[in-house]
Amino acid sequence: MSSQSQYYVPEQSKLPIFASLGLATTVWGLASWLNGGEYGTTILFVGFLIFALVLWCWFHAVIGENIAGLANDQLQRSYVWGMGWFIFSEVMFFAAFFGALFYVRTFALPWLSGDGTHDSFTNTILWPGFEHQWPLLTTPDAAANGDNALKLGPEQSMSLSAAPSIWSWLPFWNTAVLLTSSVTVHIAHTALKNSNRKSFHLWLGITVCLGIIFLILQAEEYIEAYHHMGLTLSSGIYGATFFMLTGFHGAHVALGTFMLLVMFLRAVLKNHFKSDDCFGFEAASWYWHFVDVVWLCLFIFVYVLG
């Protein structure tokens, strides 16, 4: 690794076009499946398989080039910028859903219940009897149309105010697990920087386990919501925002756990990463801190202030 060496520009590569093919096949399969097409799931599965295989080969190639000493300091900085801006794009993705939540709670629901001057007609003509509340247990449809309503709210919400006590409230434990995992991944990073491999493996392994525990608890929460609380994707705007925000967060935790697991296996089985050459691990840990911050926002705005 010398900073004087030339910037590595790879030769021709078959990876990108096959990655595009895999991606396009996946989304085509997804759309066909959702539209009730005949081979939707098969196309989706084949596409995903191509995509996963190409990504595997791609990472394999990049790691190989790094081991061969082709990645100079400047290229490493490109990776740093790349990962940083990728995380920023993820932040903006979540911002869209948080923005929807704020808009609905602050503006849309009060207006639907007749607050403000310009929307009172909507209330008296379309949704008489609707009063806004959050979490929204009675939808405008349910308020106005009673038994004939199609869009019903949940029976019970996930928020703190609806829980018997904080200790029996799952999101509290989820927060504890995820915050701890952010600390453990940081300890693992520090251990790697001090070239303390045993400690690095141990704390990284603990982090992966915490990620899996979080996912299990989250699945438990969803089962609870669907089977005991009548809280589903289709239970009005509360269900929609709740499941989309926590669901996308959960998907990101799953991806982050998978990334950290791969880093763990690389470290343990292949002895990858040195104290001054560990960008793969660092990128995964940044991603992990990012999902942690998103969770904190979720915890405050979806659960506590829910």
Binding site: Y103, V104, D141, I237, A240
Partner: peptide, 17 residues
């Protein structure tokens, strides 16, 4: 496809959203 109400006032959403 999944019955959410982001843009449906009946479920508490809003087309203006």
């Amino acid at each position: 496809h999944f019955g959410t109400s982001f843009f449906d006032a009946a479920g508490g959403g809003d087309p203006v959203l």
